[in-house]
Write a protein that binds this DNA or RNA. Structure first.
Length: 504
RNA sequence: CGGGCUGUGGCUCAGCUUGGUAGAGCGCUUCGUUCGGGACGAAGAGGCCGCGGGUUCGAAUCCCGCCAGCCCGACCA
């Protein structure tokens, strides 16, 4: 059997279908019997565990601690903040009963006698319940700041689920902090955005634009939403992380009050920030190729896979021993401050089939060891960022000694490719005609990419553009210089450019 | 929640128009030959044909009802 690519269709032919096929071929996740919910399989979950470890380290390093708050939120809590309700009410799962009884048809139904006095909402996000808790914890300015993160699942009843990118239930982290002053809370919001941008670059090999959301794209209840935006290979934007300055909105809604240094009652200033399993989808779409996933080494569950080649059964033992010995030497090396992660694949499968499995899964480095290698003291090495037939034959010592550098090079390659893709498809646009042409699909092209253009700052213009072209303001870039110009849509005066794109 | 479509071994589907013993490919199991780039042969296992009712000597197939899922339109990390 010979195929051009491991994944059909190719990215070029049908990007959304390619994505689904990659998720399946790489054994990352599958749809469950529950609509909109996914089963994250060990390889996919391994990626999430590595993301968690990386982020958790960065959170701890910036003074945060983990805690856990309830899955269920009393309905009345959610109703406390008006904008928040409006944002989330449409997509909430609600628990109304606490007991089942036979339905008389061989099944079960909620016991009408067990209806809850107050329905519970399965958290779509936890601002309200955490706010209610902080209200109890905070009495004095001496109790601030509170710097807490939680790793949790949340539920948003989505109409259009897509594995990892948009599912009814997903895993994430949500940081929730409370501060004495506005300045401190704003600094926290920015600090965590910087953490996300650093994580995207250093762990995910993903260049990101940072900036602020327009009022229309803001988190419900926030004063200001900051975000990181990445470009994936169909040139659409994906929001990879958000950090919100919540002002005193939630403090007022939940009663987070304290006695200040001046002995006055004041409301705290709060923030929240989060990234989710959507990052896995982002990585797939940003780095994958027509043979499957390509994982940035720092989040790869296995960074090196060793494939024993034993043509004759009587060689197996010797080959396995050589593989185990190599694995041990590799594990003594480190990359990104952690021991190199190595897997020896001893399954009794055809060699080609095995190799292709690991290619599709995106393991950064594959090594084959057979009798000839043992004799010569060499190994056969293939890298996932290069062609699948391209092999190098270093000595085992050279290979082990160079593994840290090799993983670093692969990370750099991915970063470079993603940066080139983004830069090649990011343009400045001045006129409505150009703008429309840029975002109008020609042939099989999906999207023009990112456009920096002037915007008059009104919600009307923003909505018109969205209606006309399905293009949104991804962010008002944090580092964009003031520049006088005319709005690309309305022609009205504008003081700076914003980032437009089609998005996930 | 409005419009279109589909429910048949683990997966993808054929069979239904014109009722007559449930099929294929892939996957799985065993054995043999293979194994340095997605192997081949042989033999097997596996099905309340979505659910309920009706018509009929006889229903995967025809009729009615229900349920579930998929695709398209308004929201979203």
């Amino acid at each position: 059997m010979s195929q051009q690519t491991a994944i059909t269709p190719t990215r070029e032919q049908d990007f959304p279908e390619w994505y689904q096929q990659v998720v399946k071929a790489a054994d990352l996740a599958e749809n469950s019997d529950v609509r909109g919910c996914m089963v994250i399989k060990p390889w996919g979950y391994g990626i999430w565990e590595n993301m968690q470890r990386g982020l958790d380290g960065l959170f701890k390093a910036t003074g945060h601690k983990n805690a856990y708050f309830p899955l269920f939120i009393p309905l009345s809590y959610l109703a406390k903040e008006a904008a928040h309700v409006e944002g989330f009410a449409k997509e909430c799962a609600v628990v109304t009963h606490h007991r089942l009884v036979p339905d008389g048809k061989g099944g079960l139904k909620p016991d009408p006698e067990s209806e809850l006095a107050e329905p519970l909402v399965v958290r779509p996000t936890s601002e309200t319940i955490i706010g209610a808790t902080y209200a109890k914890w905070v009495q004095s300015y001496r109790d601030l700041p509170i710097l807490i993160n939680q790793w949790a699942n949340v539920v948003r009843w989505e109409m259009r689920p897509r594995v990892f990118l948009r599912t009814a239930e997903f895993l994430w982290q949500e940081g929730h902090t409370a501060h004495e002053t506005e300045a401190e809370a704003r600094a926290e919001t920015e600090q965590m955005l910087a953490v996300y941008a650093q994580f995207a670059r250093e762990w995910l090999a993903l260049p990101v634009f940072t900036g602020e959301k327009s009022a229309g794209e803001r988190f419900p209840g926030a004063e200001q939403t900051l975000c990181i935006e990445a470009m994936v290979q169909d040139r659409k934007a994906i929001q990879a992380g958000t950090s919100h300055f919540l002002g005193q909105n939630f403090a007022k809604a939940s009663g987070i009050q304290f006695v200040s240094r001046e002995n006055k009652q004041e409301f705290a200033w709060t923030t929240s920030w989060g990234v989710s399993t959507r990052l896995i989808g982002t990585v797939i779409m940003a780095h994958g190729d027509d043979d499957g996933v390509i994982l940035p080494p720092r989040i790869a569950p296995a960074q090196v896979v060793i494939l024993p080649v034993a043509p004759k059964p009587e060689m197996r033992e010797a080959v396995f021993a050589a593989c185990d010995a190599l694995a041990a030497k590799l594990r003594a090396q480190s990359y990104g401050g952690e021991a190199v992660r190595v897997e020896v694949d001893k399954r009794d499968l055809g060699g080609g089939q095995k190799s292709w499995e690991w290619i599709k899964r995106g393991v950064p480095v594959r090594v084959e060891i057979g009798p000839r290698d043992i004799e010569k003291g060499t190994v056969a090495v293939a890298r996932r960022d290069r062609g699948h037939k391209e092999k190098a034959f270093p000595t085992a010592e050279e290979f082990v000694g160079g593994i840290t550098a090799t993983l670093g090079e692969i990370h750099a390659t991915l970063m470079d490719r993603a940066t080139m893709l983004r830069d090649a498809n990011t343009v400045k646009i001045e006129t409505k005609e150009e703008f429309t042409a840029f975002f109008t699909a020609k042939g099989k092209e999906i999207s023009g990419g990112f456009a920096f253009a002037h915007w008059d700052g009104t919600a009307e213009t923003e909505a018109e553009i969205k209606d006309a072209l399905k293009v949104t303001i991804r962010c008002i870039p944090s580092d964009s210089p003031a520049e006088d110009g005319a709005c690309v849509w309305s022609g009205r005066p504008s003081g700076r450019r914003v980032l437009f794109a089609k998005s996930y």
